[in-house]
Design a binder for these strands. Structure first.
Lengths: 355, 355
DNA sequence: TTGTACGCGTTATCAG
DNA sequence: CTGATAACGCGTACAA
């Protein structure tokens, strides 16, 4: 990402930009131009009955002529429309969250609701800022995925504004999630069935909630009479890579895990990177599994075994839940859970010893 | 992405959600609770001088107690602060745009400006909606990357609101971009230097602007005495994959290109997919190069030769340009251009014949 | 159908 | 520091 700095581009013949009209054009202006009252313009723009087709056309024509753009800020302030949804996602670089977003847009799109976006940061672990920004912007309900806050704080925030947590269950808060225990169990059993015994788990950082994936991994290992072996890394690929590197290089050859189950695809990619650096081939020397069935996992050269939680569907359900909450604020808390699907790919195979 | 439908989750003991307070708490309420005037509360929240530290604390304490969240909607309507920036990006799945966004956030973050997001759709080619949404939300300047609109329409939109185009030059509009001709030339020359002669280019759809990458490819080929061979695909990986599949399977063996230069990494990944399906190995049977130096390109198993345009830096420059435009609306149009860097990786190698 | 008047929650000004 | 008052641009009865 280091690139030569740029040359100053020419300003084609000293042109002056077209935009930048200092005074904003308002409905008032449109009304005046069209020779009608401001209320009529408002009515025309909202599409409610009360304007003749001709005058309506005249109004839009006038608006176009003077370059009017409706002010949604003022509009939302004036109207009691309690139907706007805010969407918060942790990380734009993890496509699960983007999938969720797409799902949300699918249903909000149908209802004509606009969605305000808030974006967090994996390194700052500061969803607080993004979340409160959404609240300040008067989102009437917030759909959040990838929340890093401890359960207690999420519950507290949901006290200020209805909140639907996606991808993560939070007691006392509406949520739509996938059965992470089931998914992690599927992965671990898959690895066991292939003949692996030294299976390590690269867990997500503790964020003051449950850790269903890690728990299910550990339980399944113990049930098979094996000792779980966990290590923790951050949320980024590079931090996972560093963790995996030390795991794979330090122990005695016979100690090294033959398979690593990473808590998600992003970190699984980090494991793959580390393996490459160490000259370990996948899956010959090491099996790797992730979680989320990200786009990258499906790429042929990667072909990462993963778990599909159908994030898009989660998004759809979350949007429905959000609207339902808006409709009946005091209905009981809903925790919807979906069943995930294992997607076995070439990154997992029998261990070397079993070959 | 097809997953089993979900089971209805239990509603833990019929709890009722915490949130959903029908009446919104306002500054008025805070003022009353703290025993001060509304003006003072406003002053306290804006951080302007005029409040003693003690009363300020008291105000915030009162606000916390009754769960007050400032209403940024009302605030922006009332304030004459014309400094808000809207950011539009085409596709959340193409990490270049996310890089640009990060760059923008870097500088807006320093200035404390919040950024409103608008997201487009690659399949709909409808940036209009996203853009006008940003205008309606009263963004005072718009930074847009991945614009699909024809030059003329962009120019027209920039008439309504100052606009900075990132990643693409548009005559008459502020822009920050990378020298695509230079980058594409680097790639083509790289392939030529490796000994390739049958080099195909997978171009982006025509969107009514210039096509610097395709042009540079064609020019460089001709200069080497070779016939350019172009085909066009959509913006998605799958459409690129389909196009590449037909290109690679139909022609007679000796006709098949030995290298494909795709217009960006997303489509290059599509080419890689197609090659895998056809049993062609990279780079042994086919060299592949992309553009953008996306995260996926750097992954060891992919190792895609690409061009780094330092999108993050583009984002930074765009934000600066946006603020500059806000400061002097009638300054001449600026077109800043950065020089890209070739990132040769393992996906490109000498052609089979030269081996 | 049209125009009037009030309110949304804040900012901003100005005289106390 | 306070309290009153005028915007901000528009939604929304209500009356004409």
């Amino acid at each position: 990402m280091t690139a030569e700095s740029g040359a100053r581009g020419g300003s084609r013949g000293g042109e002056t930009p077209a935009g930048a009209s200092p005074a904003r054009v308002t409905m008032e202006d449109v009304a005046r131009r069209a020779g009608v009252s401001r209320s009529l313009v408002s009515i025309a723009y909202r599409g409610v009955p009360g304007v003749s087709d001709e005058t309506r056309d005249a109004i839009f024509e006038a608006a176009r002529a003077i370059g009017y753009t409706p002010n949604s800020i003022a509009s939302r302030l004036a109207s009691r429309n309690r139907e706007s949804v805010g969407f918060y996602l942790l990380d734009l670089r993890n496509s699960v969250y983007v999938d969720v977003f797409d799902g949300v847009r699918e249903v909000t799109g149908e209802r004509g609701t606009t969605v305000v976006l808030g974006v967090g940061e994996t390194h700052g672990s500061e969803d607080r800022a993004g979340l409160t920004a959404l609240m300040s912007s008067q989102a009437d309900v917030i759909i959040a995925t990838g929340l890093l806050l401890p359960d207690a704080e999420i519950l507290e925030l949901s006290r200020q504004r209805p909140l639907v947590s996606v991808t993560r269950q939070v007691p006392g808060v509406d949520s739509v999630s996938s059965d992470d225990e089931a998914g992690a169990t599927l992965v671990t059993e898959h690895l066991l069935a292939l003949g692996h015994r030294r299976i390590a788990h690269l867990a997500a950082p503790d964020i003051g909630g449950r850790s269903p994936r890690a728990d299910a991994y550990a339980r399944t290992m113990r049930k098979a009479g094996l000792e779980p072996r966990m290590l923790t890394a951050g949320f980024t690929q590079s931090s996972a890579s560093a963790a995996a590197r030390s795991l794979l290089s330090s122990p005695a050859p016979g100690e090294r895990p033959t398979a690593i189950f990473a808590t998600n695809d992003v970190t699984a990619l980090g494991v793959i990177e580390a393996a490459h650096e160490l000259g370990l081939r996948i899956p010959r020397d090491l099996s790797v599994a992730g979680y989320d069935d990200t786009a990258a996992a499906a790429l042929a050269p990667i072909s990462l075994t993963s778990v599909d939680q159908d994030a898009r569907s989660l998004g759809r359900l979350a949007a429905s839940a959000a609207f339902a909450r808006l409709a009946s604020p005091s209905a009981p808390v809903v925790a919807r859970v979906q069943q995930p699907t294992l997607r076995p790919r070439r990154s997992t195979a029998p261990p070397p010893s079993a070959a």
